[in-house]
């Protein structure tokens, strides 16, 4: 049982790291702000989500697991808002349309 749990954690965390890596490569290589934002928010969203999913079985207590999920949710909220604000300024037509 513990082997399966450890394996699950390892796979989830590795998958999360791949998303961060891909997001970083996208941030460096994509041609304009909107596509770069797209790459960045994927890393925040799925990368962090998978890492936290992998950490949940290792967290040891329900309250720690809950805190991890809360951290993920707050990063989601902040990331989505920041991406919206930057995208509005980056649009060629300017903001507010």
């Amino acid at each position: 049982m513990t082997t399966i749990v450890t394996l699950f954690s390892a796979v989830a965390i590795c998958a999360g790291i791949i998303f961060f890596l891909a997001g970083t490569v996208g941030l460096l290589r994509f041609p304009d702000s909107l596509t770069r934002l797209h790459a960045l928010t994927k890393a925040d969203n799925l990368g962090l989500g998978l890492i936290i999913l992998g950490l949940l079985p290792l967290s040891g207590s329900f309250s720690t697991a809950l805190k991890l999920v809360l951290i993920w949710a707050l990063v989601q909220l902040a990331g989505a808002t920041a991406a919206q604000l930057i995208a509005r300024l980056a649009r060629p037509s300017g903001r507010g349309k």
Partner: peptide
């Protein structure tokens, strides 16, 4: 807009 919504959700937390 995004920022007021963010504020409403985040500030209580």
């Amino acid at each position: 807009g995004p920022l007021p919504l963010f504020g409403r959700l985040l500030i209580p937390i």
